[in-house]
């Protein structure tokens, strides 16, 4: 920065004529950000925090009111833009980059560039597996098969995590079945049976849903606050949401709209228990046989998905 001769005549408290570029200043020469600026920045940051929450809620409201599904990228773009603005404000003022040596800002920019490279190229691969040839497309078993979780090793056990055998099911399904089995046992115990029969299993399932819906969702214990999601969820599972006791599959071709909300890589939303509505013997252990893929619906009737039934 060039100082003209006028600067010397102007009473400028920060200017030292022996050191026009300010390199040799003592610490008093460092920029002290005014309290007013700091306060303003805080208020702006708080405003943006409220804004990002409000916009997110607004999107939910739009979806609920107009029964549309907004694409996910909208949510991401809005949230990340606001977060970036907030981060820039924190860096520039709270961290003082705006008044600091340019080098520190350059370092931060290089760092951001490295992060972008990292995210960008990793996503290019994992987001485009089947882009050229289907040979490389990944068709994972949703949630995994639990393979290897039940490995037993000889000698001392040092694995800190629980060792569970999920019999080829994803862990979510395994836990659900565990709970259902437990409820069925409770029902059986009520009738003095040691082994649950079909009626007990059915009663257990009803209890599962009753608890989930009445005691959990309705009482607000479940943070699933999106009205339309709850409706879609339960309807897709075959529950008319006014009467939880009627278990009756609902034919809802329009539910494809729900799946359309997700990018290509997603499979259909399965709801809580994909095979819960199949006939009594449908809780088979071979979850991977039912592996839903991108183009496969598992809300279909059992006859369509599993010829064995």
């Amino acid at each position: 920065m060039e100082h003209s001769i006028d600067d010397v005549h102007t009473p400028n408290p920060d200017f030292d004529p022996t050191d026009p570029h300010g390199h040799g200043h003592g610490h008093h020469g460092h920029h002290i950000i005014s309290a007013r600026t700091l306060m303003t920045i805080l208020l702006i940051l708080l405003f943006f925090t409220v804004l990002t929450v409000a916009l997110s809620r607004g999107e939910v409201w739009i979806q609920d009111t107009f029964h549309v599904i907004l694409p996910q990228w909208l949510n991401v773009i809005i949230a990340m833009s606001i977060a970036t603005v907030k981060a820039v404000l924190v860096c520039a003022y709270f961290m003082g980059l705006r008044f600091d040596k340019a080098l520190n800002s350059i370092i931060m920019l290089i760092c951001v560039a490295a992060v972008i490279c990292f995210l960008f190229f990793t996503s290019i691969d994992l987001g485009n597996r089947g882009a050229v040839s289907q040979l490389r497309a990944t068709v994972p078993t949703p949630g995994g098969t639990g393979y290897g979780l039940d490995r037993t090793y000889d000698g001392i056990s040092t694995a800190a995590s629980p060792r569970i055998s999920t019999s080829g099911q994803p862990i979510t399904e395994f836990r659900r079945n565990e709970k259902l089995a437990q409820l069925a046992m409770t029902e059986a115990a009520k009738h003095g049976r040691t082994e649950p029969n079909e009626a007990d299993v059915a009663a257990g399932e009803a209890e599962f849903w009753r608890y989930y819906y009445n005691d959990y969702v309705k009482k607000g214990k479940h943070p699933h606050r999106h009205e339309h999601d709850e409706q879609n969820l339960f309807e897709s599972l075959g529950f008319a949401h006014h009467d939880t006791n009627v278990i009756e599959p609902v034919d809802r071709p329009d539910l494809d709209a729900v799946s359309a909300s997700s990018p290509n890589f997603s499979y259909r939303r399965t709801g809580i228990t994909p095979h819960l509505l199949d006939d009594g013997s449908s809780h088979d252990a071979h979850g991977d046989a039912h592996a839903p893929s991108a183009n496969e619906s598992h809300d279909a009737t059992p006859a369509e998905t599993d010829p064995d039934h």
């Binding site: 990944t138 078993t141 995994g144 639990g146 862990i171």
Partner: peptide
């Protein structure tokens, strides 16, 4: 871990 839905790649 693909056994839990993750990705070794």
């Amino acid at each position: 871990d693909p056994g839990l839905g993750g990705d070794p790649v």
